[in-house]
Deep mutational scan, measured.
Amino acid sequence: EKTLKIVADSEEEAEALAKELAEKYNLEVTIERNPEEEGKYVITIKIKP
């Protein structure tokens, strides 16, 4: 299993990107607040072998 993390500037941007990735590529995608940067969100994508 591989994990890729993407940082987005807004929750709306994160949700839109996560939804597109999940639907288009059938990936497991989660969104959470970035504890290191206020106002940023981390999109985590898990790629199963």
Results as ranks from 00 to 15, higher is better:
10 S>W: 01
7 V>H: 15
28 E>R: 06
48 K>F: 11
9 D>R: 06
18 A>Q: 04
11 E>G: 04
19 K>Q: 07
9 D>S: 10
45 I>E: 01
33 R>I: 10
38 E>Y: 14
2 K>Y: 04
6 I>Y: 15
7 V>Q: 12
21 L>P: 00
17 L>T: 03
19 K>G: 03
40 K>I: 06
22 A>V: 13
40 K>A: 05
35 P>I: 09
30 T>H: 08
44 T>Q: 04
44 T>Y: 15
19 K>H: 06
23 E>R: 15
8 A>G: 02
25 Y>I: 01
39 G>Q: 04
13 E>T: 06
47 I>W: 15
9 D>F: 12
2 K>M: 12
4 L>N: 03
23 E>F: 14
21 L>K: 00
17 L>W: 15
43 I>F: 03
10 S>A: 01
46 K>H: 12
10 S>K: 02
31 I>Q: 01
2 K>Q: 13
49 P>I: 12
20 E>G: 07
19 K>C: 06
11 E>I: 13
48 K>M: 08
25 Y>E: 02
15 E>Y: 15
48 K>G: 09
22 A>M: 13
6 I>N: 01
47 I>F: 15
30 T>E: 06
23 E>T: 12
41 Y>L: 03
22 A>C: 07
11 E>A: 11
31 I>K: 01
31 I>M: 04
15 E>W: 15
15 E>C: 13
38 E>K: 12
27 L>N: 04
36 E>T: 14
26 N>E: 03
9 D>M: 05
25 Y>S: 02
5 K>S: 09
30 T>P: 01
17 L>Q: 03
2 K>R: 10
9 D>K: 06
41 Y>R: 02
17 L>N: 01
13 E>R: 05
18 A>K: 06
8 A>W: 02
43 I>K: 00
48 K>L: 11
11 E>C: 08
29 V>T: 05
36 E>Q: 10
29 V>F: 14
17 L>Y: 09
11 E>S: 08
37 E>S: 09
38 E>N: 13
2 K>G: 11
8 A>E: 01
33 R>K: 13
7 V>P: 12
42 V>F: 13
10 S>M: 01
8 A>N: 01
42 V>W: 15
36 E>N: 14
7 V>M: 11
31 I>Y: 12
35 P>L: 11
40 K>L: 04
32 E>L: 10
34 N>T: 06
34 N>H: 15
21 L>Y: 12
14 A>P: 00
41 Y>H: 02
28 E>D: 09
16 A>Y: 10
2 K>S: 11
1 E>F: 05
30 T>Q: 06
47 I>E: 04
7 V>R: 15
4 L>E: 03
45 I>N: 01
24 K>V: 08
23 E>I: 12
13 E>K: 07
44 T>I: 13
46 K>T: 11
28 E>G: 03
20 E>A: 13
47 I>K: 04
24 K>L: 11
17 L>E: 01
38 E>L: 11
24 K>N: 06
27 L>H: 05
48 K>Q: 10
43 I>L: 13
39 G>D: 04
16 A>H: 07
44 T>C: 08
12 E>Q: 09
15 E>P: 00
39 G>C: 09
47 I>V: 09
30 T>L: 08
17 L>R: 04
5 K>L: 10
42 V>E: 03
7 V>E: 11
27 L>E: 03
30 T>G: 03
27 L>Q: 05
6 I>D: 00
48 K>E: 05
42 V>N: 03
35 P>W: 10
9 D>Y: 14
1 E>M: 14
40 K>S: 09
49 P>T: 11
13 E>M: 09
40 K>D: 02
25 Y>R: 01
44 T>K: 06
16 A>Q: 08
34 N>R: 07
24 K>H: 05
38 E>V: 08
24 K>F: 07
40 K>R: 09
36 E>A: 09
23 E>K: 15
9 D>P: 03
15 E>G: 05
43 I>Q: 00
16 A>R: 11
34 N>M: 13
48 K>S: 10
10 S>Q: 01
16 A>W: 12
13 E>D: 05
26 N>Q: 11
39 G>H: 06
44 T>W: 12
20 E>N: 11
20 E>T: 14
45 I>P: 01
47 I>C: 13
25 Y>W: 08
7 V>Y: 15
41 Y>T: 02
8 A>R: 08
31 I>D: 00
26 N>S: 10
45 I>H: 01
1 E>I: 15
49 P>C: 15
4 L>H: 07
20 E>V: 14
49 P>V: 13
38 E>C: 14
38 E>R: 08
33 R>H: 07
38 E>H: 14
14 A>M: 03
28 E>Y: 08
49 P>R: 12
37 E>A: 11
49 P>G: 12
16 A>V: 07
22 A>F: 11
33 R>L: 08
35 P>T: 09
3 T>R: 05
3 T>M: 07
21 L>G: 00
10 S>H: 02
25 Y>A: 02
24 K>S: 04
35 P>G: 09
31 I>R: 01
5 K>P: 03
24 K>G: 03
19 K>A: 08
29 V>K: 00
21 L>M: 09
22 A>E: 04
43 I>W: 02
47 I>H: 04
23 E>N: 12
4 L>Q: 04
11 E>W: 14
21 L>F: 11
33 R>P: 11
42 V>K: 02
34 N>Q: 07
23 E>P: 01
3 T>I: 11
48 K>R: 13
27 L>D: 02
40 K>N: 04
39 G>K: 04
43 I>D: 00
13 E>A: 10
8 A>L: 13
32 E>H: 10
24 K>E: 02
29 V>L: 04
44 T>G: 01
43 I>N: 00
9 D>C: 10
28 E>I: 10
48 K>V: 09
49 P>W: 15
48 K>N: 11
48 K>H: 10
32 E>A: 09
31 I>P: 00
20 E>Q: 12
44 T>L: 11
46 K>G: 03
5 K>G: 02
44 T>D: 01
39 G>R: 04
9 D>Q: 08
36 E>M: 11
14 A>I: 02
3 T>S: 06
13 E>W: 07
38 E>F: 12
31 I>E: 00
37 E>Y: 12
43 I>V: 11
12 E>I: 06
22 A>N: 06
35 P>S: 10
3 T>C: 13
43 I>T: 00
26 N>F: 06
30 T>Y: 13
26 N>P: 02
3 T>L: 12
47 I>P: 04
25 Y>G: 03
1 E>G: 14
46 K>Q: 08
43 I>C: 03
21 L>N: 01
43 I>M: 03
17 L>V: 06
31 I>W: 15
22 A>S: 10
28 E>V: 13
26 N>I: 02
32 E>I: 06
19 K>V: 05
22 A>Y: 11
27 L>T: 11
42 V>L: 08
49 P>L: 14
30 T>N: 06
2 K>L: 14
15 E>A: 14
14 A>F: 01
37 E>G: 09
18 A>W: 05
23 E>A: 14
1 E>L: 13
29 V>P: 05
15 E>D: 05
31 I>N: 00
48 K>P: 13
39 G>N: 06
